[in-house]
Amino acid sequence: MAFDDQESKPAKWPFVVTALVILVFSGVILGIVFLPTRHVWTNDAYVSAHYATIAPRIPGQIIEVLVDDNQSVKAGQVLARLDPRDYETALMRSKAQLVHDAALVSDAQASVERQPSMIEESKAEAGRISAQLVYARQNAQRYHNLAQTGAGSNQERQLTDASMREMEANLRSMNARIVAAEAELPILRARHDAALKTLEIDRAVIKQDELNLSYTDIRAPFDGMVGEKTVQSGNYVAPGAALMAVVPMDQLWIMANYREIALRHMRPGQHARIHVDAYNMDLDGIVDSIPPASGAAFAPIAPENATGNFTKIVQRLPVKIIVSPGQPLAKLLRMGFSVETSVDTQLENVVDEQQHSTTGITAR
């Protein structure tokens, strides 16, 4: 009878095991949630780069495209060419204008150099007339005396008086001409200076025309790979029109969007592990900088939390992680790849360090 009672009594060990599993699982979950970890991970990350949009600086017709999609290019390599004939003609015209204006400068300089001689010539002529005037006055006085004594005629006296007055008028005219010639000298010098400034303008125009002609060769600004090519020979393009993009393949970096609470121990210089989904490979990286704002702060339509319907949402900040140099596998990266990043923060006390520092330790 006792043997039957023992068989009917349920075993307790399944409940104990279940309770232990639940306790261990809850402990692990609580530990993950509440205990700090030196490794912070996110899968909200991708490969990014500051690429260049290639656009012409001058209008013109494309006569040649020298690269194709996904082609590697070197800095300074010609990517496309515009028709240069209009700009060659403009350069020839500006050079001819420079020669013309240089001749005007020479003429103005000769006028300035000739003017003092003309002034001296006028002064010499005035001296000659002045000497003749002395003789004419003396002669007029003699005939005046002779006319009073009856030894000379009135006609001769009147003739000498007229000759004297003519000499006086000639002297006044010559003196006025001297004043005008001296006053014209600053004007000639000003014209010469203006002609010299015109030469400077002509040289600037030539420089600009030379630049415009050089802009007909559209070149790569740095080493990289061509993408988004939309140009074809025969297209007429305007300044600023996007022709293609050049991505600097040696300057790719990781944009890892970490939750704000994950930045508690993060700072620039920490080691990061980058897992590339496309090739199932890992790369080493370094935290470059912590951004100045969250992604929502730069959104075209920023959230407005003052409307009365605020809901607290944990924000994400795009942490910049650069790929460590000297890794051959890094050449497989492409802009836009999805990656996973894990930063070894070593549980650094960022708050305490910042409290004793006058600079921003989370900025580069």
Rank of each mutant, 00 (worst) to 15 (best):
A296M: 10
H100R: 13
W41N: 11
A299R: 14
N280P: 01
A110G: 08
F3N: 11
D217S: 13
P291I: 12
D4C: 07
I313F: 11
Q327E: 05
V47S: 03
L252W: 01
A262Q: 15
N257F: 03
I261M: 05
N154M: 12
Y236I: 15
P291E: 11
V246K: 14
L199D: 09
L79Y: 07
A110M: 05
M335K: 12
S338A: 11
N170C: 05
R38T: 06
L146G: 10
E228V: 02
Y143P: 00
L30F: 13
E210G: 06
A2Y: 03
S8N: 10
S106W: 00
V231P: 01
M118W: 02
D288H: 10
A299C: 07
A162G: 11
R142I: 15
S294L: 04
I62P: 02
T230M: 06
V112K: 00
V246H: 13
Y215D: 14
Q346N: 12
S173F: 04
L185Q: 13
A147E: 09
V47G: 06
M225S: 08
Y135Q: 15
A45W: 15
E260R: 05
A126F: 01
M118N: 13
Q315N: 09
G269R: 05
I321P: 08
H39V: 13
L146W: 09
P84D: 05
R114F: 08
P186D: 05
P84Q: 05
T311P: 01
K95I: 11
T359H: 01
